[in-house]
Every structure is written in structure tokens, then in C-alpha cells.
Design a protein around this nucleic acid. Structure first.
Length: 287
DNA sequence: CGTATTTGACCCGCGC
DNA sequence: GCGCGGGTCAAATACG
């Protein structure tokens, strides 16, 4: 049986649309994990489901794929996790950094591209772009091959020694969607206060650099999600919320362990896959 | 003047 | 070994 590594990012659709395609439903689920990461997940009826070919073809195009966690949104918003590859090569001795090293403030370690620690990928719409509790400082921008849009690089400016980084780029498939990749996702400090998180992120009342790059960006620059504001409903905290008597997943960012735990617990219900306009989506539905 | 952003240069991992 | 491409640095610039 083929097992798909979770490395690529795909888009999503609404759960109601997906529910109309029950032939693409699978479950219950099995998954594999190494010591620290979820490495693959697959439906146990993968081999017996007569529609597996559909999924297989999608897998060829988009494999591997991610689950989608916001079935409510009219616009696709998905939260995903990008684990490290299953087969990690033994760590090579690193070359000496060529730039001068200050003993008091060592330069952040540069990680292998294939071995980025704690990498989290999040897709958001322009509306949600400023919804970030952390204060970020832009330190670079690069054109990306194959994409008409540049990628911007940000580091956490809340704390001097914090290694948290994020990259923001527009999806070349859907320019209305922004792909935010967090690396070193754990901050070495607590959430900044609302005041401090705003301090330094805005030069003025005008838009941040990231916001400026958004065509058609709304003037409501202070749109902040409840999560970003630190308001955590208990059901949201657990990653599930009830709607129409079903328990659905929500658009929350998960750590490695949390995501693994989600699939461990997902032994009932179905996971619905759907292909739509070049995207593959999945929605987990608890009974 | 202090802080954030811009942008060209540089570094380095990785594939060939 | 070499070149490509992605990530980071840091000087210059912008802005309040």
C-alpha cells in the first residue's frame, strides 16, 4: 500500500460541497509517525474503496496532500503542517559560517532546506493576513522561481534572541490566498501584549509592508481573529467545534504533537476528499 | 533620531 | 566541482 508523505500544500473547499461527494469519503484512518513527526496518513479502506483510483490520480498530481481545517469559510482558509521528511540523512558536519560570529549574540543556525525544524504552513486570505499576535520585522524579499510573486521574509521582533521566522508569499494558483510558512515556529518568549505586538509593526496608520503587497487589501488593517487576540473558546482550543450536530475541525495551527494526536483520535467519522479547480481538500468530520 | 523597510550582495545547500 | 536557487545580511533609505 502506498503511503503518502505530508509535504505539499493544497487548497480546500466548503464542507457542504464536499459532503455532496460521498464517494470520495474514506475512513477510519491509519497513520504513521516517526519519533517526532506525523509522516503519513491514509484511509484503512484505501485498497478496497472502488473510488481509490480517483484519489490515486489526485495523489499523482498533488501528492502528498494535507487536511483542510476550515469548512466554514466561503473563502478557502486552511491550516496545515509540514513535517520533516521521513528519511532524514545523518547530519553532516556544518561548515563554519563565513560571516563574523559575535560570541555575545550568535547568529541563528542555518538549517538544511529539507530539515527545517518545526515548519508550519498556513494559507490565509488577505483579510486574515494581519491577524498575527506576534510582531514581525521584514528582513528580506526574494523572487521565487515559478511564481510571479516574491516571497517576503520576516523574523520575530518581539524578543531579541527569538529565532521564530515566517515567510509570506502569494499563491500562484490563487492570488487571493497567501501562503505563510513559519519556521522555528516556537517563540522563546510569551505572547506580546496587544500594545507591544502593535508597537514596531506599524510605521504609521498606513499599511504594513505585507499588507501593501496585497492588491485590494482592505483598509481595516486591524482585523484580528479571536485566536490572535488570545480569546480561546474551549471547543476551539480542542480543535473542534459543533455545527449542525456534527463536530468539525477548525482553522487552528497545530504543533507536531497536536497534529499527531488529532489523527490518533480520529478513529471515527470520515475524512472527505475533494478535487476542485486544481486543489485537493479534505475535511474531517466526527460523528 | 530611532526604527522599519528596501534591496543588492553574499552565503550555502542541493542537484546534476 | 559547478551552478542554481533560496535564505540571510547589512547598508541605504523611508518614515514618524
Amino acid at each position: 500500500m502506498e503511503k503518502w508523505d505530508l509535504q505539499a500544500v493544497v487548497g480546500g473547499s466548503s464542507i457542504n460541497d464536499a459532503m455532496e461527494n460521498p464517494q470520495l469519503s474514506f475512513g477510519p484512518w491509519s497513520f504513521q509517525q516517526d519519533e517526532h513527526h506525523l509522516t503519513s496518513f491514509f484511509p484503512e479502506n484505501f485498497e478496497t474503496n472502488p473510488n481509490v483510483l480517483d484519489l490515486d490520480e489526485l495523489g499523482e498530481l498533488y501528492k502528498p496532500f494535507y487536511p483542510v481545517f476550515n469548512p466554514y469559510s466561503t473563502q478557502t482558509i486552511l491550516t496545515t503542517f509540514q513535517p520533516v521528511p521521513r528519511d532524514q540523512p545523518a547530519e553532516k558536519p556544518k561548515k563554519q559560517q563565513s560571516f563574523p560570529v559575535n560570541k555575545d549574540s550568535p547568529k541563528p543556525k542555518r538549517f538544511s532546506r529539507k530539515n527545517q525544524p518545526n515548519r508550519v504552513v498556513q494559507h490565509v486570505t488577505a483579510d486574515d493576513l494581519p491577524s498575527d499576535v506576534w510582531a514581525w520585522r521584514k528582513y528580506g524579499q526574494k523572487p521565487i522561481k515559478g511564481s510571479p510573486f516574491p516571497r517576503s521574509y520576516y523574523r520575530c521582533s518581539s524578543s531579541k534572541g527569538c529565532l521564530a521566522r515566517k515567510q509570506v508569499e502569494r499563491s500562484c494558483w490563487n492570488p487571493g490566498v497567501f501562503i505563510i510558512t513559519y519556521t522555528c515556529a516556537e517563540h522563546c518568549h510569551g505572547h506580546p501584549t496587544r500594545r507591544s505586538s502593535l508597537a514596531g509593526r506599524t510605521r504609521n496608520k498606513s499599511l504594513t509592508a505585507a499588507a501593501k503587497s496585497v492588491a485590494g487589501y482592505k483598509n481595516g488593517a486591524n482585523v484580528v481573529s479571536p485566536m490572535a487576540m488570545g480569546i480561546r473558546d474551549e471547543s476551539v482550543e480542542q480543535g473542534r467545534v459543533k455545527m449542525d450536530g456534527r463536530i468539525l475541525t477548525t482553522d487552528i495551527m497545530f504543533s507536531d504533537d497536536e497534529l499527531v494526536q488529532r489523527y490518533e483520535n480520529f478513529d471515527e467519522g470520515v475524512c472527505i476528499f475533494r478535487a476542485d479547480s486544481g486543489f485537493v481538500s479534505s475535511t474531517m468530520v466526527w460523528p
